Measured scan of single mutants.
Amino acid sequence: NLYFQGLKYMVPGARVTRGLDWKWRDQDGSPQGEGTVTGELHNGWIDVTWDAGGSNSYRMGAEGKFDLKLAP
């Protein structure tokens, strides 16, 4: 699974964008943008601060869902 392989790169400072299971509307800005991981992966959740200004926790394994992917 590509998403599980990418988890080791989901570290503080990593750049991310919305992924396969995104369901959080425009939390990442409008139009959709990139963000920066600000915390360690914990119980399948990870913290992100978006360039647009907001921050929140997103699923990276929790509930079998992956809200994020590494930015290109």
Results as ranks from 00 to 15, higher is better:
N1C: 15
G54D: 08
Y9T: 08
T36Q: 07
F4P: 15
E34C: 15
Y58W: 02
R15D: 03
K8Q: 13
H42P: 02
Y9E: 12
A14I: 08
Q5F: 12
G13P: 03
F66C: 10
V48N: 00
R15W: 03
G33Q: 08
T36I: 09
N43C: 15
Y3K: 13
R18Y: 06
G39M: 05
K69Y: 13
S57R: 15
L2C: 15
S57E: 08
R59Y: 03
T17R: 13
P12N: 09
V11H: 09
L20H: 14
G35F: 04
K69P: 00
S30V: 15
G29F: 05
T38D: 06
D51W: 02
G29T: 06
G6I: 15
S55Q: 11
P31V: 07
P12C: 14
E34H: 13
S30E: 10
G19C: 08
G6C: 15
S55G: 09
N43I: 06
K69S: 11
S57L: 08
F66K: 04
K8D: 12
D47I: 14
A52R: 10
G13A: 03
G61N: 02
D51R: 03
K69W: 11
W50V: 00
R15P: 01
W50E: 00
Y58T: 01
N43F: 10
Q27F: 06
V11D: 03
G13V: 03
T49D: 09
G54A: 08
Q27W: 06
K69Q: 13
P31C: 12
E40C: 15
K69R: 12
E40T: 13
N43D: 12
T49I: 12
V37T: 04
L41E: 06
L41Y: 10
Y58Q: 02
F66T: 04
A62S: 08
G6V: 15
G6N: 13
L41A: 08
V11N: 07
D28A: 06
N56Q: 08
D67I: 01
L68G: 02
Y3R: 10
R25Q: 15
E40H: 13
D28N: 11
V37R: 02
G53P: 00
V48M: 00
N56C: 13
T17L: 12
T38W: 05
K23P: 08
R59N: 01
Q5E: 15
Q5V: 12
V16E: 02
R59V: 01
K65Q: 07
A62Y: 15
H42T: 13
Q27A: 07
E40S: 12
M60V: 08
Y9M: 10
E40R: 11
P72R: 13
T36M: 07
M60C: 09
F4Q: 13
D67G: 00
S55W: 13
Q27S: 06
G29H: 05
A62F: 13
G13W: 05
D28E: 06
T49A: 09
G61Q: 02
S30C: 15
G13C: 09
D26T: 07
L2K: 14
F66V: 06
G44N: 02
G53H: 02
W45R: 03
G61W: 03
D26K: 06
P12R: 10
G53S: 04
R25K: 14
K65R: 09
D47Y: 12
D67N: 01
W24I: 05
L2G: 15
G13K: 03
S57V: 11
N56Y: 15
T17Y: 05
F66W: 11
